[in-house]
């Protein structure tokens, strides 16, 4: 058994922290303090936490590079799984609580409403990542594990589209929040490109095949 270091003992704390938003939401729902349209609040808040956790997951690699603290990587799987967890709660609330009783509408919504199509696609793509998140699967898939988990970038883009497309558009975007999240995602994706470019300019001569990129 591995020795429990700082990251090891802090993990249960991170679990508790990650479950806090859901706990607060359930409490608010039980107390009836979610406002006039509680179902829309459940949808919004579970969705926003899925996105936040996804962005946190994506920020591990750049943060690790900036801080030089490699221990950070050990939080990544947990954060990614929590993103999947909140996305699943989000979808369940929508299907069971919101559309409950109007089952025939579900297919039409997923197939015909682009913002729902992309949201659903993002959730579907999270499934293989969650299933292959174990140490055993990592070992078995080897290099392909890294390739598979590059899907997380596409998921990030789909999740942002899902958010932005819901916002009413006038001449400008009516609500700023989705734009802020889009900017964060863009920054996190850009942070991954920069080192490669730096490497290229530093070494114009074609080097041997570069070391395999760390998994996203």
């Amino acid at each position: 058994m591995r020795r429990l270091d700082a990251v090891g003992w802090s993990k249960p704390l991170v679990v508790l922290l990650a479950l806090m938003p859901l706990a607060l939401l359930v409490l608010a729902a039980l107390h009836g303090t979610l406002g006039p349209d509680p179902v829309s609040q459940l949808e919004k808040r579970t969705g926003i936490w899925a996105l936040r956790l996804l962005l946190l997951t994506l920020s591990i690699t750049p943060l690790r590079r900036i801080t030089g603290w490699n221990g950070l990587i050990r939080y990544r799987r947990m954060l990614g799984l929590f993103a999947f967890f909140y996305a699943s709660v989000h979808l369940t609330v929508y299907l069971v609580i919101d559309l409950g009783g109007f089952w025939s509408q579900i297919f039409a919504e997923i197939a015909k409403k682009p913002y729902i199509t992309v949201g659903f696609a993002a959730w579907l793509l999270l499934i293989p990542l969650a299933l292959t998140s174990t140490r055993g699967m990592m070992r078995r898939l080897g290099r392909r594990w890294g390739q598979l988990h590059k899907l997380v970038y596409a998921i990030g883009v789909l999740a942002i589209l899902h958010f932005v497309w819901q916002v009413k558009f006038g001449r400008t975007i009516a609500v700023r929040e989705p734009v802020i999240y889009a900017a964060i995602l863009a920054a996190l994706l850009l942070a991954r490109w920069r080192p490669k470019r730096a490497a290229l300019s530093a070494r114009p001569a074609p080097a041997r095949s570069p070391a395999p990129a760390p998994p996203p």
């Binding site: 729902a29 009836g32 006039p36 349209d37 509680p38 179902v39 829309s40 459940l42 609580i97 919101d98 559309l99 109007f102 509408q105 039409a108 919504e109 015909k112 409403k113 682009p114 913002y115 497309w165 819901q166």
Partner: peptide, 17 residues
């Protein structure tokens, strides 16, 4: 982006999900 087949009715003073 909304489908208009159905609507969420906000009515009553009771809280219901």
């Amino acid at each position: 982006p909304w489908s208009q087949h159905t609507e969420r009715r906000i009515a009553g003073s009771g809280f219901s999900l």
